[in-house]
Amino acid sequence: MKVLLIIPAYNEEQNIEKTVNDVIQNTDYDYVVVNDCSKDKTKEVCEKNNFNMLSLPINFGLTSGIQLGMKYAYKNNYDIAIQFDGDGQHQAKYVKNLVEEMEKTKSDIVIGSRFVTKKKPHSLRMLGSKLLTMAIFLTTGKKIKDPTSGMRAYNRKAIELFVRNASLTPEPDTLVYMLKKKMAIKEVQVEMKDREFGESYLKPLKSIEYMINMFFSIIFIRAITRKNI
């Protein structure tokens, strides 16, 4: 099985080196850094360390970055593509569990979930997560315990969907789309760290916009996906 880790990075000069070294040391898989036209020295750091990098000349957001990673995976015939954050929140030692679960259960998507065996803490962030879990359950009848997790493994079939359909985001609404396409989703317990440096894609004020977008997308767009289109 050929496995590729897609590491999207935007203004991560302080985190990217550590993240990629973690991947190199703790896994045997290939990786590619997708530099989304960072304003800081992310590109220079990657070049200095000779990391395998796709560097975008225009900033286009996370969705485009993941799609580019998927295109790369598709072109180079990878069987599994794993989305892996470049901000140091994800630990490479858990990636193996995702791949093993996927091989064992023959599922199409495996999510590195924080809440399979552990309970969700009570906070505003987790309330958002709970609401999304509920929306996914109501539309598909399946319980995804950690829908916002950024660590996900996709098989060849899912990679193809990402390459063909540019509207697929690396977000919870895509899970609904995939479930409606009758694809199997599994969750594996992982642990995540808090980010050390830099800013997240999801700034506090943006999270309200994010939730509204997700709900509209899940209820009005993804929920009426049919299996064969």
């Binding site: 590619v32 796709l54 975008l56 286009f60 485009s64 295109k71």
Partner: peptide, 14 residues
């Protein structure tokens, strides 16, 4: 279209 062009440049450069 711009996004596809953007991707194309990145893939070529790689």
């Amino acid at each position: 279209k711009i996004k596809d062009l953007n991707h194309y440049i990145a893939l070529k450069e790689n």
